[in-house]
Every structure is written in C-alpha cells, then in structure tokens.
C-alpha cells in the first residue's frame, strides 16, 4: 500500500494495489481503495478511467493447440539440422532428383498418417503395477489405476493420467526430446529419471536425476533440478507446492511395489491406499486420523497391506465391499 499522491492516470496504472482493487484480488488493497475513493470524490473520474483502461476489452483465449506447436517445432528443428549438416550437397540432390523426392514424400507422409492413427494405450487396474519398455529404450513404470498412451511412430511423446516413473534414455546424437503431457502441464526431458502423478485437479512431478523443463498450462516455464518436487494445478492456476525432497524413495518406492511412509498422518497415508487399491476409506474414530505412521506397505496385496498398517499403528481395519473401515483398538 502506498501513501503517494495520485494526480494523473499513470499514478493509478502503475500502482499494483490499484490493479488488485480493480480485479478485487487482495483484501487489504480492496479496503484501502474503497476508503481512498470515498475520501477523494474529486478523483472519481480519474479512478473510473484508469479502471476502464485496466479492464479494457476481453478477448477469448485463442491459442494454437499444443499438438500444432509441437509439430511446427519439429518442422523447424529438422530445418535447423539440415542447414547445419552440409547445406550445399542438399541443394544439388534436390535439383537432380526432384521427381523421385516428390514421390517419396507422398509415400512417407501416407505412412506417417497411417501410423499416427495407431495409438497405443497401457492401462493398469487397482493394485496393479506395470513395467513398459518404449521403442526408444526408455523405461516406464505405471502405477495402479493409471494410463499411458502414445502413437506408434512417436513413442517419445506420451500422455499420462495417474502416476508413472520414467527412466528416459538420452539420445545424444539427435538431442531428441522426450515429452510427458498431462492435463496440467507438459514436461520436456533430456535423459533423466523422474516421477509424475496426476490427481483430479493437479499434477505432481518429482525429479530424481537429470534435467527437465516444465511448461505449465498458464504459459509459465520452469526448469527442475534433481530433488525438486513440484505440484501444480491448472484449474487453480497456481503452483501448490515447490520444495526439495532429500529422501527420493518416499516419492518413488511405489515402483518397486511398496509405499513408504515417514511420519505421515494416517489420514494422508490412507489417501494413498485409496488411490492405489480403489477402496474408499472410512474413519470411525476421528482421533485415529492424526496418528503418525512410519514404515512400508505392499502395493499389490491389500490383505498384507492392511495387516502391516494394523501392526504399525494401533487400529483395526475391516474390509467390507469397497470400503476400509478404520477404528481405534
């Protein structure tokens, strides 16, 4: 908040708190400006003009689709490579064999579109973990209730919903990128190991080693370094969490079939169980929610999992239909 003088329209336009008032964004700023305007009736024309200027005209968000941008980038990238590798020879070849080249292009594009249509999808059910090896040699471990899809000719670009751990092979010669796309963001990868998990309203990314760049839905770009953990929601248009995690197995142990908990509340831990096994959890006793749990439970056998939890914290868990009912002993 400022105590400066507001004499012309620029004084308002350059003031962030004024803009906050226009968009009704910040409680303190709103209060300040309501008060200020009531006490400066002679400035009301200026205030209205400045407000109109900030609001302006609203246009629809008319963005070029992500797929189109990616395609255009590939086009440009191959042009750059062509130019960098023996440009002269290329021209001569093109002139000599232009007819042959035209035919070749038609045939390959035909194949390209045919292949493009064959989309491959891997799906897992609750309590199931799947290891997938992609054509380029990259390893993907898919957690339960998740799906991974890609086009046959383009296995270095995958769509994910749910959770997966990636170990991507670096293509040194071509510098070809690996892409992971979720509802909230897309990740550009240059040979690396990382974990991605999408929930209803957010995507969590944890980088174990290497180098990745995130493009968030709101247009921001972020570079991640090893140990970084980021949680972003496109719906809320903000980064929910951004921190460093020392013990990487807390985020990635699931790929070896176990969930690790370290002083986690039972409530949070049971959320993980819900996601993995598809049971809904009912707490009979609210006090049990805050009990801290430390230990490992299996991800593919619900009975052993229940037993392990019962042993490490003082609760009884009853499995009934699709619910787990928890009560204090």
């Amino acid at each position: 908040m400022t105590k400066r003088k507001y004499n012309d329209i620029n004084d308002f336009l350059e003031d962030e708190s004024f803009e906050n008032w226009v968009y009704q964004k910040n409680g303190t700023d709103i209060n300040f400006w309501e008060f200020w305007i009531a006490n400066n009736p002679d400035k009301s024309d200026l205030v209205n003009s400045a407000k109109d200027l900030i609001l302006g005209i609203s246009f629809k968000n008319n963005n070029v689709s992500e797929e189109k941008v990616a395609l255009e980038w590939q086009k440009l990238q191959s042009k750059i490579k062509d130019k960098e590798a023996k440009p002269k020879q290329k021209v001569i070849l093109l002139k000599k064999f232009s007819v042959a080249a035209t035919i070749l292009i038609i045939v390959t594009t035909g194949f390209y579109f045919l292949n493009r249509n064959s989309k491959i999808t891997h799906k897992t059910h609750y309590g199931e973990i799947l290891k997938v090896k992609l054509q380029d040699g990259s390893d993907v471990t898919l957690n339960s209730n998740s799906s991974l899809s890609y086009y046959k000719n383009e296995s270095r670009k995958v769509w994910l919903s749910g959770e997966a751990f990636f170990k991507v092979d670096k293509k040194k010669a071509t510098n070809a990128k690996f892409w992971v796309i979720t509802q909230d963001l897309s990740i550009q990868v240059y040979g690396t190991a990382f974990n991605v998990s999408t929930k209803k309203k957010k995507t969590d990314v944890f980088l174990e080693e290497g180098d990745i760049w995130l493009s968030l839905k709101n247009g921001e770009t972020k570079q991640m370094l090893p140990g970084n953990y980021i949680s972003y929601s496109a719906k809320e248009n903000r980064v929910l969490e951004d921190k460093d995690i020392d013990n990487s197995s807390l985020k990635t142990s699931w790929k070896d079939g176990t969930l690790l908990f370290e002083k986690l509340s039972l409530e949070k831990a049971m959320e993980k169980i819900e996601e993995s096994y598809g049971y809904s959890v009912v707490f009979k006793d609210d006090k049990a929610k805050n009990t801290l749990i430390t230990g490992a439970v299996p991800l593919t056998n619900i009975d052993i999992c229940i037993e392990a939890i019962e042993k490490s914290v003082d609760v009884t868990i009853i499995k009934k239909d699709n619910s787990l009912i928890i009560s204090k002993k």
Partner: peptide, 18 residues
C-alpha cells in the same frame, strides 16, 4: 542452446501466430 530455443518457440508461437 536448442533447448532454450524450444522454450522460446513454445512460449511465443501462439501469440505471434495470432
């Protein structure tokens, strides 16, 4: 740095296209 260039391309393509 081609990676930086791709970030630039992806951030501005849509705006420049329009």
């Amino acid at each position: 740095d081609l990676n930086a260039f791709s970030v630039l391309f992806e951030s501005y393509y849509s705006k420049l296209y329009n």
